[in-house]
Amino acid sequence: MESYKEIIELLKGQHPSGLAKLYQGYGRAFYSYCIQKWNLSEDEAWEVVYRTLETLVLKIGNYDLLTQVDFDRFVYRVLINFLRQEYRSKKQKETGQVVYVDFSAESGSNEGFANYLNRDAIHSYYNQEGSEHPQLTSLKNALESMEQTDKDLLLLRAQNYSYDEIAKLLGIDNNQLKVKHHRAKKKLVEILNGQSNY
């Protein structure tokens, strides 16, 4: 795989070979990951790959990526963002139901992607990331203690659903939904700070 520094310099300089080297280094790993871990079709997988590569070309020069791990972490996050959008859209069309993407599941595991890159450093990094942080556990517990509507509202907004989409998905009135979201966030913070038991 090409040096991440070389790829960054080529992309910053808008050199045509930058995209080619990025694809050579990551494209096939992206594609395999989409197909085998997220069960996308070939067309869906290539769409995610193209959107990921396009975004990396446009955005990667705006970040200070000092190490290979920083570079791979950034690349992974961009890929996962598009995978999440594709997966959510696909499942919603199939079922007509609200879909949450569970990143603790194998389909979205960091360790799984590290295996596709096949590098010891990134494998080690994602193994470390894969162990759940205590704050994440606290957040999950806090969300579970909330009323279902508040929990759904917070999770849907976190996945970039609009208020109109949320109202439709949850079958509730959009009136004051923004205010309800603000109140739900306040409740969540209070629970996390140990100030309330909802």
Rank of each mutant, 00 (worst) to 15 (best):
N62C: 04
H123C: 01
L10Q: 10
S89F: 08
Y198A: 00
E165W: 04
L53A: 14
G112D: 06
R51T: 09
E190Y: 04
D43K: 12
L56I: 15
Q159I: 03
L58K: 14
L58F: 06
L22T: 11
L79P: 05
G61V: 06
I80D: 13
I35Y: 07
G171K: 03
K90M: 08
Y31S: 05
E144Q: 12
L19N: 08
D102Y: 09
G96I: 01
N39W: 07
K151F: 00
D43V: 10
E190D: 15
H15V: 11
L58W: 05
D150Y: 05
L58S: 13
N115V: 03
K168C: 02
V48I: 12
M146L: 15
N118D: 15
K178V: 02
Y126R: 02
N160H: 14
G96W: 02
L117T: 02
I166V: 13
E132I: 15
D72V: 12
T95D: 04
Y76C: 06
D72S: 13
V179S: 13
N141R: 10
E132Y: 02
F30P: 00
A105R: 14
L143S: 04
E6L: 12
Q148L: 07
K5V: 09
L40N: 01
L56K: 07
Y125C: 00
E94R: 07
L83I: 11
K168L: 07
P134N: 02
N141G: 02
L177W: 05
F113W: 10
Q24F: 10
R84W: 01
R28V: 11
H123P: 00
T137G: 04
L139C: 00
P134C: 07
D120Y: 11
N118H: 05
I191D: 00
F71W: 12
V179F: 12
V57Y: 10
N115F: 09
D120P: 06
E42H: 14
H181C: 07
N174P: 08
A142L: 03
Q159R: 08
L192W: 01
V78R: 12
L154N: 05
K21M: 13
